[in-house]
Amino acid sequence: MIRRETWQAWALLLPALLLLVAFTHWPAVATLIDSLYTTPRGSRPPRFIGLENFASLLDDRVFWTALRNNFIYAAATIPASVILALLMALAVNTALPGRPLLRMAYFTPTMLPMIAVANIWLFFFTPDYGLFDQVAGLFGLGRHNWLGDSATALPAMIVVAVWKEAGFFMIFYLAALQAMPPDLREAADLEGSSRWNFFRRVTLPLLMPTTLFVLVNAVINAFRLVDHVVVMTRGGPDNATTLLLYYIYETGFRFWDTAMAATLTVVLLVLLAALAWLQFGVLGRRVHYR
């Protein structure tokens, strides 16, 4: 016989469970299944083809470009945004006049929707009239089509992402810095520790839990944040700014190749899972939690 508490517990869990299953678990499983079938077209029903979709990915040049772009994008945005966030947090954690204003200024990009951010930067990057070209003009440099040149388009995307993300990560660092007891600093001062020594030997290790959290988020965002690509370049020129998620979007919703899109999604998920496992496994062991 089922005990009363048992079915009460299930009843209480049911609403959340239903939502989770309907919108998270089932779609994930469905994606995995879809990746093993062909795309249904017209009257043709999907047909089971095993790992053939994955095999054809290996021959897909755009897939490899997207993967390479995404790794470059991640390798640049993650360290840049995390280090910048830490520097900004250290800067606004000291007693400066106008500190609240500075904090707000750093945080503003985070509050803006990515579409709005992309529009602002679209203006910055405009040839001739844009902020970059106007500044470059002051130094006598010629015009440059930042988004139209396949050499500078991806770096431009990276700059926008860093600008958007650093402020967000700064908040976590700032909170962690403020939670650090000030007497640690005073004890170190009395012991003759230099500022740099204190930062390296005390501040940085004590910030490790925050760093791990921020890093995990930065990695996820490096594969997730593609709104600005949609607005600014649509993956161009010549796929120079095609990132994995953007390629999934194109495959699924422009070419309606749902099976391939599902296959790409599975690849992305496996990639993210591997990265998360790596971070918690390698970094997690070196983190000191209080």
Partner: peptide, 10 residues
Amino acid sequence: FQSYALFPHL
């Protein structure tokens, strides 16, 4: 210090 101010990670 009253709080001892020991470095928790060392």
